[in-house]
Deep mutational scan, measured.
Amino acid sequence: TEYKLVVVGAGGVGKSALTIQLIQNHFVDEYDPTIEDSYRKQVVIDGETCLLDILDTAGQEEYSAMRDQYMRTGEGFLCVFAINNTKSFEDIHQYREQIKRVKDSDDVPMVLVGNKCDLAARTVESRQAQDLARSYGIPYIETSAKTRQGVEDAFYTLVREIRQH
């Protein structure tokens, strides 16, 4: 089974770092803004072998026109913010609204991801993020692309959301 996953969120929150940590098991430290990259990885989730087709997208506003296209083809979405960047957390709402509009559905598989949880300088409390996820009816997972904490959990949870859909 193949799953088309799309990673969305503001610029600099760590979308590529999360994806590369999942696929290649290493942490990319330097920031190089993405336009669009796709990665494929075969994994076993709950005993089922599946192929993850992951689209890593641009957070930069100037590429926002490309969003409709990949939102149409994606089956599930990782909505990523950084726990030390309140603005990126506030941006999640717009991504969710755009996904709902493009998919013409209120019920699209999504996982809210709070990345950079290895950093002490948190400005978005776990509780705020949990409340937001609960209001959307989606899971919330904290990750660190640096330490790998929660990385597999985030992507695998999204696959489970798609399966249950």
Rank of each mutant, 00 (worst) to 15 (best):
residue 87 K to P: 09
residue 93 H to T: 09
residue 127 R to E: 12
residue 104 D to I: 02
residue 88 S to K: 10
residue 151 V to A: 14
residue 55 L to N: 14
residue 13 V to D: 08
residue 2 E to H: 04
residue 13 V to H: 14
residue 160 R to E: 06
residue 77 F to Q: 08
residue 142 E to K: 07
residue 102 V to L: 07
residue 28 V to T: 08
residue 146 K to D: 15
residue 152 E to A: 14
residue 131 D to C: 00
residue 76 G to P: 01
residue 29 D to I: 04
residue 92 I to R: 03
residue 92 I to K: 07
residue 56 D to M: 06
residue 2 E to L: 04
residue 19 T to P: 06
residue 127 R to Y: 10
residue 165 H to I: 11
residue 16 S to C: 00
residue 26 H to L: 09
residue 50 C to R: 02
residue 145 A to K: 00
residue 22 L to H: 14
residue 159 V to C: 11
residue 84 N to K: 02
residue 36 E to N: 03
residue 111 V to Y: 14
residue 138 I to K: 00
residue 92 I to H: 02
residue 18 L to M: 08
residue 104 D to Q: 06
residue 135 S to I: 13
residue 11 G to V: 15
residue 111 V to N: 09
residue 53 D to M: 05
residue 100 K to S: 06
residue 15 K to E: 00
residue 134 R to M: 13
residue 147 T to D: 14
residue 10 A to S: 07
residue 160 R to Y: 12
residue 142 E to Q: 09
residue 93 H to I: 00
residue 30 E to D: 00
residue 1 T to K: 07
residue 121 A to Q: 11
residue 24 Q to I: 13
residue 17 A to L: 01
residue 125 E to L: 12
residue 148 R to C: 14
residue 54 I to W: 05
residue 82 A to C: 05
residue 19 T to L: 07
residue 64 S to A: 01
residue 63 Y to M: 12
residue 25 N to G: 03
residue 92 I to N: 10
residue 48 E to G: 10
residue 157 T to N: 13
residue 122 R to Q: 13
residue 157 T to R: 11
residue 54 I to S: 05
residue 62 E to M: 07
residue 5 L to A: 01
residue 129 A to R: 09
residue 162 I to G: 09
residue 5 L to R: 00
residue 62 E to T: 07
residue 30 E to M: 01
residue 86 T to Q: 08
residue 94 Q to W: 14
residue 88 S to Y: 03
residue 138 I to A: 09
residue 42 Q to W: 05
residue 75 E to D: 08
residue 81 F to T: 08
residue 61 E to K: 13
residue 47 G to N: 00
residue 128 Q to R: 10
residue 108 V to E: 05
residue 76 G to T: 08
residue 89 F to T: 02
residue 67 R to K: 09
residue 125 E to G: 10
residue 165 H to S: 09
residue 21 Q to S: 05
residue 155 F to C: 14
residue 9 G to V: 05
residue 120 A to E: 11
residue 103 K to D: 02
residue 160 R to G: 11
residue 38 S to C: 09
residue 137 G to H: 03
residue 133 A to F: 13
residue 69 Q to D: 07
residue 10 A to V: 05
residue 136 Y to E: 03
residue 49 T to C: 03
residue 140 Y to P: 08
residue 73 T to W: 04
residue 116 K to Q: 15
residue 143 T to V: 13
residue 133 A to K: 03
residue 114 G to T: 09
residue 146 K to T: 15
residue 38 S to L: 11
residue 27 F to K: 06
residue 98 Q to G: 03
residue 16 S to Y: 00
residue 102 V to C: 08
residue 147 T to F: 10
residue 112 L to S: 07
residue 131 D to Q: 12
residue 163 R to W: 08
residue 38 S to F: 02
residue 66 M to F: 12
residue 26 H to M: 07
residue 49 T to R: 08
residue 15 K to W: 00
residue 53 D to W: 07
residue 118 D to S: 13
residue 52 L to P: 09
residue 155 F to W: 10
residue 163 R to L: 13
residue 72 R to L: 05
residue 154 A to I: 15
residue 43 V to T: 02
residue 118 D to M: 04
residue 8 V to Q: 04
residue 84 N to R: 03
residue 107 D to R: 09
residue 159 V to G: 10
residue 17 A to F: 02
residue 13 V to Y: 00
residue 157 T to L: 14
residue 11 G to F: 14
residue 7 V to M: 10
residue 70 Y to L: 14
residue 49 T to D: 01
residue 80 V to S: 02
residue 123 T to R: 09
residue 93 H to D: 05
residue 11 G to C: 15
residue 25 N to C: 03
residue 17 A to D: 03
residue 130 Q to K: 12
residue 80 V to C: 10
residue 158 L to F: 04
residue 6 V to N: 10
residue 114 G to I: 13
residue 12 G to L: 15
residue 110 M to P: 02
residue 68 D to Y: 05
residue 88 S to M: 04
residue 58 A to I: 04
residue 147 T to A: 10
residue 100 K to M: 09
residue 65 A to I: 11
residue 48 E to A: 02
residue 10 A to P: 05
residue 44 V to T: 07
residue 150 G to M: 02
residue 55 L to D: 15
residue 158 L to H: 12
residue 97 E to S: 08
residue 134 R to E: 09
residue 34 T to C: 02
residue 32 D to L: 11
residue 79 C to Y: 06
residue 118 D to V: 07
residue 129 A to G: 07
residue 67 R to N: 14
residue 158 L to Q: 01
residue 122 R to A: 12
residue 102 V to T: 00
residue 127 R to S: 07
residue 32 D to A: 12
residue 44 V to S: 04
residue 38 S to G: 11
residue 145 A to C: 14
residue 98 Q to D: 02
residue 55 L to Y: 04
residue 1 T to I: 04
residue 98 Q to Y: 13
residue 136 Y to T: 09
residue 13 V to S: 12
residue 142 E to P: 11
residue 107 D to Y: 04
residue 45 I to L: 03
residue 54 I to Y: 01
residue 161 E to V: 12
residue 87 K to F: 04
residue 165 H to T: 10
residue 153 D to S: 09
residue 118 D to P: 08
residue 1 T to S: 03
residue 30 E to L: 06
residue 123 T to A: 09
residue 165 H to P: 09
residue 143 T to Y: 12
residue 17 A to K: 12
residue 8 V to L: 01
residue 57 T to L: 14
residue 91 D to P: 01
residue 144 S to D: 15
residue 117 C to F: 08
residue 36 E to D: 15
residue 26 H to D: 07
residue 53 D to E: 09
residue 70 Y to P: 04
residue 143 T to P: 13
residue 5 L to E: 00
residue 13 V to F: 00
residue 34 T to G: 01
residue 107 D to E: 04
residue 90 E to F: 01
residue 44 V to M: 00
residue 47 G to V: 04
residue 59 G to P: 14
residue 150 G to E: 15
residue 125 E to A: 08
residue 164 Q to L: 06
residue 60 Q to P: 15
residue 27 F to Q: 07
residue 13 V to L: 13
residue 131 D to I: 10
residue 141 I to V: 06
residue 78 L to E: 02
residue 88 S to W: 06
residue 81 F to I: 02
residue 81 F to A: 06
residue 89 F to N: 00
residue 51 L to V: 05
residue 58 A to K: 14
residue 44 V to L: 04
residue 11 G to P: 14
residue 84 N to C: 05
residue 106 D to M: 01
residue 39 Y to L: 01
residue 108 V to N: 00
residue 133 A to L: 09
residue 8 V to G: 01
residue 91 D to Y: 09
residue 111 V to F: 00
residue 113 V to M: 12
residue 3 Y to H: 05
residue 153 D to E: 08
residue 83 I to D: 09
residue 162 I to C: 04
residue 2 E to R: 02
residue 45 I to R: 03
residue 60 Q to T: 15
